[in-house]
Every structure is written in structure tokens, then in C-alpha cells.
Design a protein around this nucleic acid. Sequence first.
DNA 1: TTCTGTTTGGAAACCGGTTTTTAGAAGGCT
DNA 2: AGCCTTCTAAAAACCGGTTTCCAAACAGAA
Lengths: 331, 331
Amino acid sequence: MAEIAALAGVSKPTVSKVMNGQPGVAATTRERVERVIAERGYVRHGAARALSAGRSGSVNLVVKEVDNPYHAEIIRGVEETLERAGLSMVLTATHDEERRHRRWMARVLEHGTDGAILVLPDEHFTHLAELHNRGIPVALVDDRGEIPVGVASVGATNFAGGFAATEHLLSLGHRRIAIIGGPSFKSTRERVAGYRTALQEAGVAVDPRLHQAGGFVAETGYEAAKNLLRLDEPPTAIFAGNDLQAMGVYRALYEAGLRTPDDVSVIGFDDLPLSRLLTPALTTVRQPVREMGALATRMLLQTIAGEKLESSRVELATSLVVRESSGPPKI
Amino acid sequence: MAEIAALAGVSKPTVSKVMNGQPGVAATTRERVERVIAERGYVRHGAARALSAGRSGSVNLVVKEVDNPYHAEIIRGVEETLERAGLSMVLTATHDEERRHRRWMARVLEHGTDGAILVLPDEHFTHLAELHNRGIPVALVDDRGEIPVGVASVGATNFAGGFAATEHLLSLGHRRIAIIGGPSFKSTRERVAGYRTALQEAGVAVDPRLHQAGGFVAETGYEAAKNLLRLDEPPTAIFAGNDLQAMGVYRALYEAGLRTPDDVSVIGFDDLPLSRLLTPALTTVRQPVREMGALATRMLLQTIAGEKLESSRVELATSLVVRESSGPPKI
DNA sequence: TTCTGTTTGGAAACCGGTTTTTAGAAGGCT
DNA sequence: AGCCTTCTAAAAACCGGTTTCCAAACAGAA
């Protein structure tokens, strides 16, 4: 910058003002400086800017795993929003490992990023309070429910989603409806509650044998479905905990020689982009995942800007997307 | 840091040495300083470090879209490798938009990151040369073939993959084998060349009507398969350009009431994690995508460290993964 | 012509570390 | 005892910008 200043016959502060579009520089001078900048292809040194300006211009996004279509959607929502705001996204995967948690914590703490967005903070995540205490802006997506006061968080209306899916199956005539849960997140519990409530309102008894549990992965869906098919009175419909589980259910049904939805209806949760590509296309409860990421980002940016949030907790609406995998039960 | 120094009764440089584990500090002093650091929970200011040390400790990864399972695998490979090296990953999606290209270029140029990894640089990418000229370390994954001398790049043995897939289908007895190409990348051309070579070696005539083209998305596979099924003499096997296209082929076959592999065999390319979850599980040509990302990262780190690369271009081996979607043709 | 108010632009301080240089103390040697 | 090393740690310079503060120049008004 000193070089540019010398070439343009001005001082460093003047060049700085020109680059930042600040007032206090005569039009002719500004033009001259700009020409020199363009000629030399000068770009500022980011670290120096970050140091004196006090902000890094980037935000840290922490997910459990990057190669997971659910997280990919969130990543996309966050990236787009940050890009629009002129910020960069630092992405970290934790894989539930303590070491990786510490690494990104260190990164955030040393002001490597201006704030952090956490997706589904897991067991190891005991650090949230510390971030908050140090005054570092944080926002959460699809949290597990234990949020320190004042931390922004975005979720979905899981109860309504579970209710709607179950109601849909009931209206098709199903009475033996199984559900596959997920990890013991608040969101999972709400979905199951929605399922139970819908059954009860329809006067259908809740059969605990029809409730399987496990992780949010395809294997869980596969194993759970196999268990369910072994029951004396197997279900005519399976409500998977998410779309990935539903793929596992598809596989179990395929191996058992059963057809969807003729023999068994399947419903997923999330509405990942791939769910409409499956054969048959998956009926699922849509969560606006990308929008959730975008919203959490906007809330974080507000926090960073020092603005007060209208509400620190926001839940976006889920909606049932009926495709090919749900139909009336075989007599 | 000045505060820590005062509390420990030493000077800033001493604290700096302690934090960086440098010699020249007496054991007792070091211990005292470390205790104060721990007590106060002190963390260095990243920007200040980056400024004086001259490196940001992060690398920029540029992909076209983050919500794409192929890219997700690369992202994962890159992230893991960087994490192990103690660096952060800044992720940027371009969506082929000129504006986004400029943004990340600016970021890299202003030393916001120590280097960049580009995945499948697309049309808009005319900036590679500039980066190279400015001496900024760059590595490429799955490039299109036009690489400036000296830039590290990682690819896969696409010709061999195309050849192996076709040979597999031929050995099952197929003679009407269709292929769906992708964008006009070097990789695509090589795969098609492998396909043609395999056919010719087997003495099977290459029928241009059996060659469809389009993007690396499911819709392309869907449309292409519909076109192929309308032919007077439709194919008994379809070799999709990638796994996503294969999903589109599945859908077209499903809608046409055809069964896989009984009526039509399908082969994909990539071996994404989800390809084994499909029903039927997809036979595909495996590309070690994650490893390609990891390798490109390692090559970049070498470049950053100033080490000479043994070879600036590396191609990893593809391998055929036979699952359920390929079988002998119906008589 | 003199005074006041407004631009314009530069000098200096600062951001928070790292690196280099220098000074002092301790220990070893003749 | 005197001199030379070797350690240890502090002082100062530096990284490359931004921000604050102030002076000079200029314009308009009295």
C-alpha cells in the first residue's frame, strides 16, 4: 500500500480511504489512486485488514459430517447467505471427535472467524457455554433442545411433521404403522410424539413393538425394517426417521421381495433432493433444510452486527410431500 | 499477550516463544508462563499471527456446488487432510457464476488463504493462470485437461473405467450397450473412448444412436434413457456417465415398467456412497473420489511448503464394483 | 483584508502478534 | 581474577493495513 501511495503521490491513509470508498478524498485524487491500483493489480493484505479492522470476514460452520446430504443442504444455505453478505465460510467436520471439537473451538476463539454456526451439536459439545461466555456470536441449527439463553437457534416443526405423516397414512387406511426413531434429539422425540398423538386421536392403539430406534443412517432403516417384517403382525406402513433411513427400508423391502407401496408404504423425513429420484419416489415430510441454514446464518449476522434478535428461537414449518411410496394398504 | 507477559513478569517475546514451543526459555519461566496462560484461558489473535507470520493457516476449496454427493466426497477428503495438517478449509461454491469466481479469487489473492484447490474448473475459470502467475499455490481435482505447466492435478483412469464397465457388460452377453456421456470434459471423452475401444475389440459395431449426452445430473440420465427406450432396437444395457445419471435411468426404467437388471442392465460411474443403497444396488465404476481430494490436498501442501512435486499430474485407478444392477440380457 | 468554516490529505498511533537485535547474567576456562 | 562462551530474556523493529487527530489550503463572509 505504501508503494501504491508513493506511485500515486499520496499517503497510505489516502489509499486506504479510496479502497474503502470512504469520503474525504477529492475526486481527481481518488481517480488517480484508483488508476494506479488498477495498473498494479494491487490487492490488500487480508490478515492486516482483519487485524486492524477487528473482523476476519469469515464464519465457521460446524457439522458432524460433510458427506451427508442433509448437512449438504444446510451447508448450501449457509454458504449462499454468507456469500451474499460478502463473507467466507470455514467448514469443519467433527465426526463426534473431541480432538476436532477442540480444533475448531481454538479457531473460533482466536478470532479466526467472526462467529460460528453449529449443526446438531452432539454429546461432545460442552463448549457452547464457553463460546457464549466469551461473547462470540453463535447460531444453532436443528438443536437438541438444551440451548443457553440468548443463543440463536433454528429448528423445524417436528411434532407437526410427525403428526401429518401419520395422519396421511391413517387416512389411506393403514392401522399398523411403524415408526423408526433417531438419536435421542429433541427433534426426534417431537416427531414420535406427533406420531403417537395422531394414532391416539384416530383411536388406534400405540404398539411399542412398532417403534424402532437407531441413528439417522440407512443401516438403521435397513435393520429396523427387517425387525419389523419379522413381527407376527408386520406393519403395512413404515414411517422412517429420515430419508436416509427410508432408503434402508427400501432395501429391506426389496430383499424381502415386497413392493412399495403395494405391500408396504414408506414415508421419510427431510425431503432431501434425492428422495424424489428414488424409485418409487419417496413420500416424505419436507423440512426446509436449506432455508434453515440460511436463516441461522442471517440470525448470526444480526448477532455479529450487534442487533437484537426478535426471537432467538425460530421453527420453520414442515410439510408433507406425497409421492409414490405411500398408498392404501393391501386388504 | 502483553497482559499475560505482565502477569507472568516477562515480556511479550517470551510469551510468544512459550506459545510456539520455541527454545530459549528457561524451564521454570516456561512453566510459569504456561500456568498464567492456562489460568487466563488466553488464546492468540489469529489475524495478528497471520499478519506477522505470513500465513493464514487455511486453504480455499472451490467447487461448483456443495450439495452434490460427488463434491461432498471430495470435500470430505480435503477436509480430513487439512484437519490433520492443522489447517482450516474455506469452502466456496461457484455455481458457474462469474461473480462468485471473482469473490473467491479476491479472497485468495488477498492472502485470505494459503492456497486453493479447484474441483472441475469450469468455463468461467479463466483465472487459473493469474493465480499461477502470482505464485499462489493451486491444485486441481478431476480437471478438464488444460492445465498450466506446473500446477498439481489429480484425476482418475477414466479410459480404463469406461473400458472395464463395457467389457463387463459384453462378458454378460450384452451387444446393444448404450452410453450416456457428460459435459465435454477430458474425463468424459476418455470414458467414451474406453467404451468404444471395448466394443471394437469385441467386434461389436459402435452405434451412434446409442450415445446420449448431457450434464452430470439425474435429469440427463432420465431423458437419455427415455430416448434410448424409444429406439427401434433399444439397448439391453445402459452405461451412465455417473451415478446421478444412473438414478435418472432407474427412474425412466421404473416408469416404463421395466426391471433392472432383468430387462435392462445399468452401470454408473463414481461409486458414490448412495449407489450401494439404491434398489437394486448399483453396479458402478469406482473412482476413489475422497482419496483424490486428499491427494490433491497433500500435493497443495507440498507446494505451499516449497517442496518439488515428483509429478504434477497423478491419476488414481478406477475399479469396477459389481452389484445388483447388471446381469445377463434377456434372450 | 481578515476571519471563520470546510475540504483535503498527511503524520502518527494502533491492531497483536513474530522476528531480530541487543543486553545482562551465569558458567567455564586459563 | 579476568576473559570468553553460552543462556536467557528484554527492547525494538516489523507485518500491512485502519483510524484518529491535526495542519494546510481554500472558499466564502464580513
